[in-house]
Nucleic acid binder design. Structure first.
Length: 291
DNA sequence: CACCATGTTCCTTG
DNA sequence: CCAAGGAACATGGT
């Protein structure tokens, strides 16, 4: 479930666990996730290096390390793709089926596993330089949004997924933010008026902040579950409700009643991806706007 | 077998 | 050059 909030929760979780730990060995099981970095270069760079910091930028994790015989720090860039997970596990535990990279840190392993291998763990930081502003920072202002969307005829939902517009929003929170803002996902981006832009900015920030706060209160567990599911966040005790699903208002709720008006949630496809919204709570804006 | 899935990048078309 | 749309990537769930 990796959009900005999930990555933020993961970063906060991992930070104290890896700080000051030294990489004793580097195992690359799927070179694809290294991108342009070769396994040899990764090993050469990381072997003997020590984790000194972990931050997030959009959906990316930025590991900062001090390597031996190097003037400046090394930045290792991670991305979870759709199904990636990063966690520590005991070294004696078996590796998951889709382990992509394993860093040995003394008694524990730092494991990057990814079923579909869409994720990344690389020394190539170029992707980060192309990202738009952080939605929770001051740079993400109504003025910025207004300028950035002024000439776009693309549907607002599709624009929100563009990481160069704003970094970190994915398919789930794009739908959730538009529902909260009462704006139709189909509205052309340049058609939003100032009032709508203000509501959208606020809704984006609220939805992301709440998800972070919520994720942070759920007990984290990782690694070696008995059934081997290896949950590392948004874990839940057996039989407990799945809070992650329950707190979403429209995503994956086609046909279910809208929490606000009771009407049926609708699913449409935009840019080859599902969008969920409430026609009654979000459509009027569209009609009013297109008149 | 069909369709769907939290993401990004590359290629084509206009 | 840019905007927009779609396929590809790889695996698993229903």
């Amino acid at each position: 479930m990796p959009e900005l909030p999930e990555v933020e929760v993961l970063v906060r979780h991992l930070q104290p666990l890896i700080r000051n730990k030294t990489i004793r060995s580097v195992r690359v099981l799927r070179a694809k996730v290294l991108g342009n970095t070769s396994p040899a270069e990764l090993k050469r760079t990381l072997l003997g290096a020590r984790f000194v910091g972990l931050t997030r930028r959009g959906k990316y994790l930025c590991f900062k390390l001090h390597a031996r015989r190097r003037a400046g720090p090394v930045i290792l860039v991670g991305h979870l793709g759709m199904t990636g997970r990063m966690y520590l596990s005991r070294r004696r535990d078996a590796l998951p089926k889709h382990a992509a990279v394993v860093l040995e840190l003394g008694r524990e392993n730092f494991v990057f596993e990814d079923t579909r291998y869409f994720g990344r763990l690389t020394l190539d930081g170029r992707a980060i330089t192309r990202l738009g502003p952080e939605p929770l920072a001051d740079g993400f202002s109504v003025g910025y949004l207004s300028t950035a969307l002024a000439r776009s005829t693309q549907a607002i939902k599709v624009r929100l997924l563009d990481q160069t517009l704003v970094a970190g929003i994915g398919n789930i929170y794009a739908s959730e933010a538009l529902f909260r803002a009462g704006i139709s996902p189909r509205l052309p981006a340049r058609g939003l008026n100032t009032k709508q832009l203000r509501r959208l900015r606020r809704a984006i920030r609220e939805v992301l902040r709440e998800a972070i706060r919520f994720g942070s209160t759920v007990p984290l567990h990782h690694g070696h579950a008995a059934d081997g599911d290896g949950l590392f966040y948004f874990g839940r005790a057996a039989g407990a409700p799945d809070y992650y699903e329950e707190r979403l208002r429209v995503y994956d709720r086609e046909g279910q009643p809208c929490a606000r008006c009771g009407g049926a949630i609708r699913r449409i496809v935009q840019a080859a991806r599902s969008t969920f919204y409430c026609p009654r709570c979000q459509e009027q804006t569209e009609k009013r706007q297109t008149r």
